[in-house]
Amino acid sequence: MPETSDAGRPALVALHHTQLAMPRGGEDAARAFYADALGMLELEKPAVLAARGGCWFRGGGVELHLGVEDPFAPARKAHPGVLVDDVAAVAAALEQAGHAVVWDDAFPGFRRCYAADPFGNRLEFLEPEGD
């Protein structure tokens, strides 16, 4: 039975995944970024969905789905905010793989940086300060 909120409505439990768009044929670039640079595991998509293209990744409790979108337009402002245990190590891994990282200190209580995936989608990586 779902947990209910104080208002008697079903409560939100957790975020299952975030979907980002990618252009058709971008699966290899997605794998190089999400699996190779970030160390996420590629998930096997159900057959009925695999025919649509795209790829799914999971790592550390974070699940990202990349779906083919025609016409494609990257999310340059909207983004997932991913909590990490070592934001400097994530930034270093991305930079070593050839991806630019932009640091931002405007969120009190967190060290954070932004990077774009190979398709231009914005990603935010955050680490609580003091951890």
Rank of each mutant, 00 (worst) to 15 (best):
E42R: 04
R9Y: 13
L83S: 02
E42P: 00
E124L: 05
E27Q: 02
D6L: 08
P23G: 05
R112H: 05
A29W: 05
D104T: 15
M40G: 06
D104G: 05
P74I: 08
G25K: 07
V101G: 03
L83N: 05
A30C: 05
E127P: 01
A32T: 09
A29I: 04
W103E: 03
G53C: 02
A30E: 03
D131A: 10
R31L: 05
T4W: 14
A97P: 09
D28A: 10
P80T: 10
C113K: 01
G67R: 00
L64Q: 03
P23M: 02
A115P: 13
V101N: 07
A47I: 01
G26C: 03
L83M: 06
D28E: 09
E127S: 01
A11C: 15
A50P: 02
A115T: 13
A32W: 06
E129V: 10
H16G: 15
G61C: 00
A115N: 12
V68S: 01
L20Q: 09
G61D: 00
D6G: 13
D6T: 15
V87Q: 04
L66T: 00
E27A: 00
P10V: 12
H16K: 13
A91N: 04
R31I: 07
P23H: 03
H16P: 11
A89H: 05
Y114P: 08
D36K: 10
V48P: 10
F110R: 10
A37K: 07
V13M: 14
A51D: 14
G26N: 03
D86S: 00
R122P: 09
H16A: 11
M1R: 09
G61Q: 00
G109F: 12
F72H: 04
G120M: 14
D105C: 02
W56S: 00
G39P: 10
K77C: 08
L15K: 10
M22H: 02
T4N: 15
D86N: 03
H16N: 13
L94S: 06
F57D: 01
H99F: 08
E95H: 10
E63L: 08
D104L: 11
L43N: 03
H65F: 01
A100H: 10
A50E: 04
A115S: 14
G39L: 13
A115R: 11
V13H: 08
P74D: 12
A78E: 15
V13D: 15
C55V: 15
A32L: 07
F57I: 02
K45D: 08
Q19W: 11
A32Q: 07
G109A: 13
A91W: 07
E129G: 08
P74H: 14
W103N: 04
K45C: 04
Y34P: 04
L12C: 09
E63D: 15
P2L: 11
F107M: 08
G98M: 11
C113I: 02
Q19D: 12
D86R: 02
L20I: 12
E69G: 04
G26W: 01
R111V: 05
R31V: 04
E42M: 02
K77M: 13
S5D: 10
D70E: 05
R31K: 11
A32H: 06
G98H: 08
